[in-house]
């Protein structure tokens, strides 16, 4: 199937949750961002994000990425779910069904780590839809509102349709298939600093990178600090974290000497 899209007119931008495809190739990330932006008015939400993960275990370990994010809180909510290892996105992915939380304040017990922080960040309702087609489960479409309230029937239908379109795009778009090569340029790498910081902690202390990631997450959670911010401070060497006992919430002063 060579000349894809050459024999038909460009689609309306993101109409009906469909992905725009003009004559010129538009990067997948950009097209997905348009779908998210379109959802804001269509579903009356304040933000939308798309997170991919290959497996639940991988997603919990940080093998995930947020390939589109619209709205002030979308990236914070993604950060929080990696930090706490729980939340609507992970539940929707694990169970393969939409997770609709019209009033997050009433679900504190469901996600004791995620929910209070998400509320504090300003989210009041969260809706996550698994991106799946049969055997394939690629990630989630995550919506939030800053005021509580459920989705109407037609809003739910729009969100589901958008999820299907996104899934189809992820499955068919040449951008997403690394093939035999290692081209993963379509992934923005929103957690890149977290992995670098895990590597730095590992080299610094000899703990394995998995333990290092846990250390980062624990610090972020305990101090209510975004995980990516914790990672940046580790990279800038203003936060050590090699010693679990003396994990200091404040930035550590520059070490005056370099004793072993």
């Amino acid at each position: 199937m060579g000349g894809d899209g050459t024999d038909r007119p460009p689609d309306d931008e993101a109409a009906d949750g469909d992905l725009p495809r003009g004559s010129e190739p538009v990067a997948l990330g950009h097209r997905l961002g348009q779908v998210c932006a379109d959802l804001l008015s269509r579903v009356a939400v304040d933000g939308a994000g798309i997170t991919v993960m290959g497996s639940l275990a991988g997603g919990l370990r940080g093998a995930r990425d947020q390939i589109a994010a619209v709205g002030a809180l979308s990236s914070r909510l993604e950060d929080l779910q990696l930090t706490t290892g729980e939340g609507p996105c992970l539940d929707a992915f694990a169970r393969g069904v939409p997770v609709l939380t019209a009033d997050l304040a009433a679900e504190l017990g469901r996600w004791p780590g995620f929910a209070p922080s998400a509320l504090a960040a300003g989210a009041a309702a969260v809706f996550s839809f698994p991106l799946q087609l049969g055997v394939v489960r690629l990630g989630t479409l995550d919506l939030y509102r800053t005021r509580s309230g459920g989705l109407s029937r037609s809003q739910l239908a729009s969100a589901l349709a958008a999820g299907d379109a996104v899934t189809e795009a992820l499955l068919t778009d040449p951008d997403t298939d690394p093939g035999t090569g290692e081209d993963i340029g379509w992934l923005p790498g929103v957690h890149a600093d977290v992995h670098i910081a895990s590597g730095m902690l590992s080299a610094r202390s000899g703990m394995d990178v998995g333990t290092a990631l846990l250390r980062l997450r624990a610090h972020a959670f305990a101090h209510g600090e975004p995980l990516r911010e914790v990672a940046r401070r580790v990279i800038a060497r203003t936060l050590d974290l090699t010693d679990p006992i003396h994990d200091d919430p404040r930035p550590t002063p520059d070490p005056e000497d370099d004793h072993p």
């Binding site: 370990r61 690394p178 993963i184 790498g189 890149a192 977290v194 992995h195 590597g199 590992s202 990279i235």
Partner: peptide, 15 residues
């Protein structure tokens, strides 16, 4: 899954 895992490993190694 492989692509994500490879990318993370590269990030960790950079660190």
């Amino acid at each position: 899954t492989t692509a994500l895992a490879n990318r993370d490993a590269i990030g960790q190694a950079k660190g």
